[in-house]
Simulated scan of single mutants.
Amino acid sequence: MRAIGGVLALMLVSSTALAQGNSASGHSKSASCAACHGAKGQAVNAIYPNLAGQNEDYLALALRAYQKGERSGGQAGVMQAFTSSLSEQDISDLAAYYASLTPLK
């Protein structure tokens, strides 16, 4: 019975994580992110992660986790504040935008 519950939970997470984002909309929503993660997803300081080229589903899951207070450490409090007002579409759009950028080489 636990296995069935686990499978159902994974299906729910997977379907949520696969929401389609619009990278152009994400770009217009990324201004507040740029202060730490850079205008093109290249962090301005080594304490912040580069977002350019990251996996879209991972980014969306991470944003949701910050929003729900499920991530801790580092800048989790700051990220929770930034993500608190994001809609599901905002999250999908931001994830699509950063995933579409070329990562730092």
Rank of each mutant, 00 (worst) to 15 (best):
C33E: 08
R71T: 01
L8A: 14
P103L: 09
S32W: 06
N22C: 01
Q54V: 06
N45R: 08
S32A: 14
N55V: 05
T16P: 00
K29L: 12
L94G: 02
N22T: 01
Y58L: 02
G26L: 03
R2W: 05
K105F: 03
H27E: 15
S28M: 14
Q54A: 12
A60Y: 03
G53H: 11
Q75N: 13
K29Q: 15
A52F: 12
K29I: 00
G38Y: 10
A35T: 13
A95F: 04
R64F: 06
L101Y: 06
A35H: 13
Q20W: 03
S85N: 09
H27M: 12
R2K: 08
A81Q: 06
V78Y: 08
A62W: 01
L63S: 03
S15C: 05
G21A: 09
G77L: 10
L10D: 00
F82R: 12
A17E: 03
M11L: 15
K105G: 15
A60E: 00
K68D: 09
T16W: 14
G5H: 06
A35Y: 09
L51Q: 10
G41S: 08
M79I: 07
T16F: 14
S92C: 00
A9V: 11
A24F: 00
L101Q: 07
A3V: 07
M11F: 14
Q20H: 11
Q54L: 13
G74A: 12
G69K: 10
N55E: 06
R71E: 03
L94T: 00
G26K: 00
A34T: 09
H37W: 05
R2A: 07
S32Y: 07
A76Q: 11
H37I: 11
G77N: 13
A43T: 13
S32N: 09
G53D: 10
A35K: 12
S14Y: 11
L12M: 09
A43I: 08
L63Y: 01
H27T: 02
A65E: 13
A65T: 07
L86H: 07
F82P: 01
G77R: 05
K29T: 03
M11H: 02
P103T: 04
S23F: 04
L8V: 08
G26V: 00
K68A: 14
N55T: 04
D57P: 05
Q89F: 03
P49T: 04
A99I: 06
P49S: 08
N45M: 09
A96Y: 09
A39L: 11
T102S: 14
Y48G: 07
V44L: 15
V78G: 06
D57F: 14
N22Y: 02
M1G: 12
N45L: 12
N45Y: 05
T102K: 14
M11P: 00
K105W: 02
